[in-house]
Computed example of a mutant assay.
Amino acid sequence: MTRLEILSPKIDFVFKRIFGNENNPRILISFLNAVIKPKDPIQTVQIMNTDIDKESIEDKFSRLDIKARTDKDELINIEIQIKDEHNMVKRSLYYWSKMFEGQLTEGQRYDKLAKTICINILNFKCLKSKEAHSIYRLKEINTNEELTDLQEIHFIELPKLPKDEEIKDVFDAWMEFIENPISNKLEKAEMSIQEIKEAKNELLRLSANDKERIKYEDRRAALLDKVSALENAEEKGIEIGKEIGKKEGEKNKAIEVAKNLVSAGIDINIIIESTGVEKSEIERLL
Rank of each mutant, 00 (worst) to 15 (best):
I6N: 13
K10M: 12
R17H: 05
I18E: 10
F19T: 12
P25D: 05
A34H: 07
V35M: 08
K37A: 09
K37Q: 13
P38Y: 10
P38T: 07
I42W: 01
I42F: 05
N49Y: 08
S56M: 15
E58N: 14
K60C: 14
F61C: 04
I66R: 11
I66C: 10
A68M: 13
D73Q: 06
E74M: 02
E74I: 00
I76G: 11
I78S: 04
H86I: 00
N87F: 02
N87V: 01
K90I: 00
K90D: 01
S92T: 02
Y94D: 03
W96I: 00
K98C: 01
M99C: 04
F100V: 02
T105R: 11
T105D: 10
E106L: 08
T116F: 11
C118E: 01
I119F: 11
L127K: 07
K130S: 07
A132Q: 10
S134P: 10
I135C: 12
Y136I: 07
E140M: 07
T143H: 12
N144E: 09
E145Y: 05
L147S: 03
T148S: 15
D149H: 09
Q151V: 09
F155N: 05
E157G: 00
K160C: 03
L161I: 09
K163W: 04
K163Y: 06
D172P: 07
A173L: 09
I182N: 13
K185R: 15
E187C: 04
K188T: 15
M191C: 10
I193E: 10
I193C: 09
E195S: 05
E195T: 11
K197A: 03
A199D: 02
L204I: 15
K211D: 10
R213S: 09
I214N: 03
D218L: 12
D218E: 12
A221W: 09
L224N: 15
K226D: 13
V227E: 15
S228K: 14
S228Y: 14
E231C: 04
K242I: 15
E243N: 02
E250G: 02
A254F: 04
A258V: 05
N260E: 12
L261S: 08
V262I: 14
D267M: 11
E273P: 02
S274D: 13
K279G: 09
I282W: 08
L286G: 00
